[in-house]
Design a protein around this nucleic acid. Structure first.
Lengths: 262, 262
DNA sequence: CTTGCCCACTCGTCTATACGAGTATGCCTC
DNA sequence: GAGGCATACTCGTATAGACGAGTGGGCAAG
């Protein structure tokens, strides 16, 4: 075991009343912020840190778990602890539902991803009828049953979001919307063909920590929150024709909106 | 020490290959989800859990720290571990910058909070000139110096967001905008009086875990992400006249937007 | 040269123990 | 009754040790 280069990490201040594991986390955090550990670089191993700071292993692990829950580092069993690389983000523009984007053969997600140089995938197709949850029911005007379309989106093999669209069953039954692949332009194009000309969308955004199920589905590293977006689509008659419930890996997205000043 | 009511929490499955602390976390999570512990209720103490599950204290603490980083519970030194109450959320409507909301004496934040029955406070006023960061500089068209207005917003004594507005100095110097209190309608009303009629705003939204500094300023419980919102205001000539950088406690906000379908 | 095994190193899990520090309660003193 | 103190509980911090499991490299056998 070779000692760490001195100066790479500072040393503890025994007079400080800040807990030792917090001091260690501070030193590591500072070193990362200052670029002394690059993105993707391996931190000193736990036992190296034990030697360097002269503390027990649990104390080091405590410090590392702080950084992990901050989303700064992630550990890999058998390999080490690494500075978490910031993945490329997908920008959702405020005009992403403009009608002109629907006049293409491919889905908006696929088109946009390819334009950005990524390899898009859509999987986990599930289309079924079900009873709406209280929230969905309220948004859609209390239909007895809804069509639910679930899918998961991946970029370069990495899952970045999963979404469920809910449509009133009376509106979607026996239409291409109830097919696994609704065709070019997606369900919004089909809705308009069915006479539901779209007027506007409402989006509600929350951020929170993922549930264990969401961690699994999106393969989230610890310390990565999710963005929870619920979109309601209204037709020109003012009827809510679709609710789309989306959970996104927060480190993969920047949402962008335009607001009028009037 | 009285034993826990049986049935409140299950027991471990020794044949499972799921780690013990994960099983304990699962049991507690399930009990919380099912409402067996109400919001704000105290969980069994660490030593009660040690007795109940027959494991060491560190294992119990490990389980509890999982729940904490999920944002489900929060611990209070000397008191216990409690189910995190969901605080009332502040909804930001998509028309919140409509001109008609500016024609009042009070700030938008104050008005809206009082309407919702909360007690609003604004503090930490700091107004100073500084050199813009690279990001702010790019958004504002590379001004040499900017006016920065920092403030923190509280609801019922709880900090919920802090924000910094940046304005090109040539535009804001020696105007009411450079005063600690810019007057009724806020800086947007002043900008319009100065001939910068506002046209639209652009908002960029990210979610991430807070830095230690942000945890302190917003008094965040662990397991609460922040929403990072950067708004750029444009006048009718297409000039960016303000950048507002806002960090919000994610558990206190729902953002709401309208998108046109055209 | 290739294959396969072993070993060293990594993090993951768990135990047992100790002391410190914050909180609440009840009792005792004044 | 009011104030203060002792105490028993809470979680926070830290140590030392043990074993398990994933990873990768080097060495030995074929």
């Amino acid at each position: 075991m070779v000692a760490l280069p001195s100066g790479l990490l500072g040393s503890l201040d025994p007079t400080s009343d800040r807990a030792v594991f917090r001091q260690i986390a501070d030193h590591l955090r500072e070193a990362i912020d200052k670029g002394r550990f690059a993105e993707g670089a391996k931190l000193p191993s736990e036992s190296e840190l034990v030697d360097h700071f002269g503390v027990s292993r649990m104390t080091v692990r405590n410090a590392l778990s702080m950084l992990q829950s901050e989303g700064l580092v992630s550990s890999e069993h058998g390999k080490g602890v690494f500075v978490r690389p910031r993945p490329p983000v997908r920008r959702l523009a405020s005009d992403r539902f403009a009608r002109r984007h629907r006049e293409q053969g491919k889905s908006a997600f696929t088109m946009e991803a390819e334009a950005a140089g990524s390899r898009p995938e859509v999987d986990n197709l599930e289309v079924k009828e079900e009873r709406p949850s209280a929230d969905v029911s309220a948004r859609l005007g209390a239909p007895r049953r809804v069509l639910a379309r679930r899918r998961r989106y991946l970029l370069d093999g990495r899952p970045v979001e999963f979404a469920t669209s809910y449509l009133p069953l009376d509106l979607a039954r026996d239409t291409p919307i109830a097919q696994p692949n609704p065709g070019p332009g997606g369900i919004y194009a089909r809705l308009e063909e069915l006479g539901h000309k779209l007027d506007h969308f409402e989006e509600e955004i929350r951020a929170r920590m993922p549930s264990p199920q969401e961690i699994k589905t999106l393969r989230l590293a610890s310390g990565v929150p999710v963005i929870h977006l619920v979109r309601t689509a209204y037709d020109t008659k003012g009827r809510a024709v679709e609710v789309c419930d989306t959970v996104m890996a927060a480190d993969a997205y920047v949402l962008s909106y335009q607001l009028p000043a009037t």
